[in-house]
């Protein structure tokens, strides 16, 4: 492939370079807040990090569905991952019983970035 072709090709980028995140628990549900590192990245997150995409990403790791809420004012999305915590609270046997690191687990996902967009 020529250099020019490479430069115009859409590319896959891991979310960790486009967003930061924090997660927590409510019963057996984990929430993950995904926040764009720059406002220009937010539309990419909104368009590609859909509830169904996130459900696929966590398949086998959660037993319930995924809900998504938009917070364009904070350049953020909030995901609720149901059945994520092995019963939740004190019942859970998991190391991450309170869902604290579902945040960075989501940041492993890759999305497509247009060639025009500069990513640090």
């Amino acid at each position: 492939m020529s250099q020019r072709a490479k430069a115009t090709k859409r590319r896959k980028v891991q979310l960790v370079r486009l967003a930061h995140a924090r997660s927590g628990d409510k019963g057996d549900t984990a929430n993950v807040g995904l926040i764009a590192l720059k406002p220009a990245y937010y539309p990419l997150l909104r368009d590609q990090v859909t509830a169904s995409r996130v459900a696929r990403h966590f398949r086998g790791l959660i037993t319930g569905g995924v809900e998504r809420y938009e917070l364009p004012n904070l350049n953020a999305l909030n995901f609720l991952l149901h059945g994520a915590l092995g019963g939740g609270g004190t019942l859970s046997l998991k190391t991450d019983a309170q869902g604290k690191v579902f945040s960075t687990a989501l940041l492993r996902m890759e999305i497509t970035v247009p060639p025009s967009l500069h990513v640090d």
Binding site: K26, N75, A76
Partner: peptide, 12 residues
């Protein structure tokens, strides 16, 4: 912002 989204349900 990270703290605002912590333990959040429906933000509205």
């Amino acid at each position: 912002t990270e703290q605002l989204v912590y333990e959040m349900g429906d933000p509205a």
